[in-house]
C-alpha cells in the first residue's frame, strides 16, 4: 500500500505544468507542412493529390506527435518515434492518392504505432493495451448502435440515402479511419489527454473537455459537410461517440473498445449519402 510504504515529501507538492511550448512547436511544424501541402495542391491532378495528401497527413501526424509528447512526458528533443510516425503518416496519406489500393498504406500507421509503443510502460499507462473480449464487443456494439441510429435518423429526418458510392472508395475511407482518422483521435484525445486529465482530476471534466477538443478538431476538418444539419449531427453524434469512448477507456483501461466504437460509427457514417 503506497500510502504506507512509499516515502512522502510534502514539499515536492507542485507538479510541473504541461510543456505547452513543445506542443506549440510540434503543432506549428505540422501546420507549416500542411500549409506547404495546401500550397502545392493546385494544378495537375497528381500534384494536387500529393499536395492534398501532404496537408491531410501533416495534420494527423501533428495530432499523433502531440499525443506522443503528452503520453511520454515530453522529454527534451524531438522524439524519434513521433518523427517516424509523422513521416509514415504523411507518406501514407500521399500514397492514398496515388492509386485505388493506395489507402491501404494507412494501415502502416497503426502497425508502426504498435511497434513503437511495445515495451514502453508509459504507453500501457495511456491505454495502449489489449482489452477483454467483452469490453471490445461492448465498444463495437456502442459504435454500431450510434452509427445505425445516425443512419435511421438522417434518412428519416433529412432523406439521406444509405448507399456507398463504390466499394473501393468505401474501403479507402475505412482504411483512412482505421489508419489515421479514428486512430489519431483516440490516440490524442482519449489516450493522451483524457488519461492525463482524468489522472489529475475526475472523470466528467476530463471527458467533457477532451470530447469538446475532439469536436473542434472535427468541425475544423474541411472534409466535413458544411450543411447546418450535418454539423449539428456531427456535434451530437461525435459528442456521444467521444463520451462513450472516454467511458470505455475509463472502464476497460484500454483504448481498444473506444477505437472500435469509433470505427463502427464511421463505418456506418461512410455509407450515408445526401
Amino acid at each position: 500500500m503506497l500510502l504506507l510504504s512509499a516515502p512522502f515529501e510534502p514539499s515536492a507538492g507542485v507538479p510541473p505544468g504541461p510543456p505547452l511550448r513543445r506542443y506549440a512547436q510540434v503543432g506549428l511544424a505540422a501546420a507549416v507542412v500542411a500549409g506547404v501541402g495546401a500550397t502545392i495542391a493546385v494544378g495537375a491532378p497528381a500534384r494536387a493529390g500529393i499536395g492534398h495528401g501532404v496537408a491531410v497527413g501533416a495534420i494527423h501526424a501533428g495530432l499523433i506527435a502531440i499525443g506522443w509528447l503528452v503520453a511520454t512526458g515530453a522529454a527534451p528533443g524531438w522524439p524519434a518515434p513521433a518523427l517516424r510516425l509523422g513521416v509514415t503518416t504523411i507518406l501514407a496519406s500521399i500514397a492514398a492518392r496515388l492509386g485505388p489500393w493506395g489507402p491501404l498504406a494507412f494501415l502502416l500507421v497503426p502497425a508502426l504505432l504498435i511497434r513503437e509503443t511495445r515495451g514502453r510502460p508509459s504507453m500501457r499507462a495511456v491505454g495502449v493495451d489489449g482489452a477483454r473480449l467483452s469490453h471490445a464487443l461492448i465498444g463495437l456494439g456502442a459504435g454500431a448502435f450510434l452509427g445505425a441510429h445516425l443512419l435511421i435518423t438522417a434518412s428519416l429526418t433529412f432523406g439521406y440515402r444509405v448507399h456507398a458510392t463504390s466499394g473501393a472508395a468505401y474501403l479507402g475511407a475505412l482504411a483512412y479511419d482505421v489508419g489515421v482518422n479514428v486512430l489519431s483521435a483516440e490516440w490524442l484525445f482519449r489516450g493522451a489527454l483524457f488519461t492525463s486529465w482524468w489522472r489529475h482530476g475526475s472523470f466528467w471534466p476530463a471527458a467533457l473537455g477532451t470530447t469538446a477538443l475532439a469536436l473542434v478538431r472535427y468541425l475544423l476538418d474541411p472534409a466535413l459537410p458544411t450543411a447546418s444539419e450535418a454539423r449539428a449531427g456531427a456535434i451530437f453524434y461525435l459528442g456521444l461517440v467521444g463520451l462513450s469512448a472516454c467511458a470505455l477507456r475509463a472502464w476497460s483501461g484500454s483504448l481498444l473498445p473506444g477505437y472500435l466504437a469509433g470505427l463502427a460509427f464511421f463505418a456506418a457514417y461512410r455509407t450515408l449519402t445526401p
Partner: peptide
Amino acid sequence: PRVRASEPRAST
C-alpha cells in the same frame, strides 16, 4: 511527485 512510488503508472 510527492510520493516516491516504485510501482509504474497503470492505465487507471
